[in-house]
């Protein structure tokens, strides 16, 4: 009967840790092993496959070049300066785009009026890939940094707006009802219910647009710049230096990794309530 069930239910603790979860230490170890295996296989391929090294320089060459250009500049700048330029471009364009995108998206997701006004324009802009703006951006903002911020900003804006719209619209009617029942005003309904309950979706948008920014900046730097990861890749291509191309790839990868890690840390803080038993 029901009673035996209930006693059982009471005793079982909620399964916070699932069976196949691994410890942090283990996961670091596995990450290291898998990384090492790839590097070793890669180096072996270079050593023993004829011609492979010409089309795909080995890890030894890549690391050697990286160490060299930490001190000796390629073009105008050294390795970390190139990394810094790319980081800075993404960062500034991204922040501008994210702020405008989140505000626009929340407005559209919350207010039917705002949606009616903004969405026709937004729907036209939305499908345009950010790099399609490169010529326009150069015309409007010149060859300098501002045009790059604009391009990054645009791609971030679209993605963040879309996710914020979805977040605001997905706000539970029942939670809104509960808040109204407790005496919340329309304005408080936005600040105390719609905004916090959209936060996970907003962060999803922030993460996706960060990845998008990495590809956008690369394209923008390859079109027109004298520094950054995109420029390193282009320079390697033009001079037939595949090792430099790989260094450029690593620079953009590290840039993405740094930004995504920072973002994830902020996200964890902001929505700790949705991480069960962290």
């Amino acid at each position: 009967m029901a009673t035996s069930n209930n006693i059982k239910k009471k005793k079982t603790k909620p399964a916070i840790i699932s069976e196949d979860q691994i410890t942090k230490k283990q996961s670091t170890l596995y990450a290291f092993i898998s990384f090492a295996v790839v590097v070793v296989l890669w180096q072996l391929a270079v050593l023993f496959l004829p011609n492979f090294g010409n089309i795909f320089p080995g890890p030894y060459d890549v690391v050697a070049l990286m160490i060299k250009i930490v001190k000796e500049p390629v073009g105008r700048l050294t390795l970390f300066a190139h990394l810094g330029w790319t980081l800075k471009r993404i960062f500034i364009g991204y922040i501008i785009g994210a702020v405008i995108g989140v505000i626009t998206g929340l407005a559209m997701g919350t207010s039917k009026l705002a949606n009616a006004i903004i969405s026709p324009v937004f729907e036209i802009l939305r499908p345009i890939p950010a790099i399609a703006w490169v010529p326009m951006a150069i015309l409007w903002f010149g060859l300098g940094e501002a045009s790059k911020y604009f391009i990054i900003g645009f791609s971030t804006f679209v993605i963040c707006a879309l996710n914020s719209i979805a977040g605001a619209r997905a706000t539970s009617e029942k939670l809104k009802g509960a808040a109204r029942m407790l005496g919340a005003s329309e304005r408080q309904l936005f600040s105390k219910i719609i905004l916090p309950s959209s936060v996970p979706q907003i962060f999803a948008g922030l993460q996706i647009s960060l990845s998008a920014s990495c590809s956008t900046i690369l394209a923008a730097e390859m079109v027109r710049s004298e520094e950054g990861a995109g420029w390193l890749i282009l320079r390697g291509m033009n001079t037939g230096n595949m090792t430099l191309v790989l260094v450029g790839l690593i620079v953009i990868s590290v840039t993405g990794l740094i930004l995504a890690t920072v973002m994830r840390a902020i996200e964890r803080k902001a929505i700790s309530w949705s991480f069960r038993g962290k």
Binding site: R180, M181, I193, S197, V199
Partner: peptide, 19 residues
Amino acid sequence: EPDPKIGVVYQETNLFPWL
């Protein structure tokens, strides 16, 4: 319309998960 003088509790608790 909903009014703080009428308190409701449903089967779904409708707690605010972020608080």
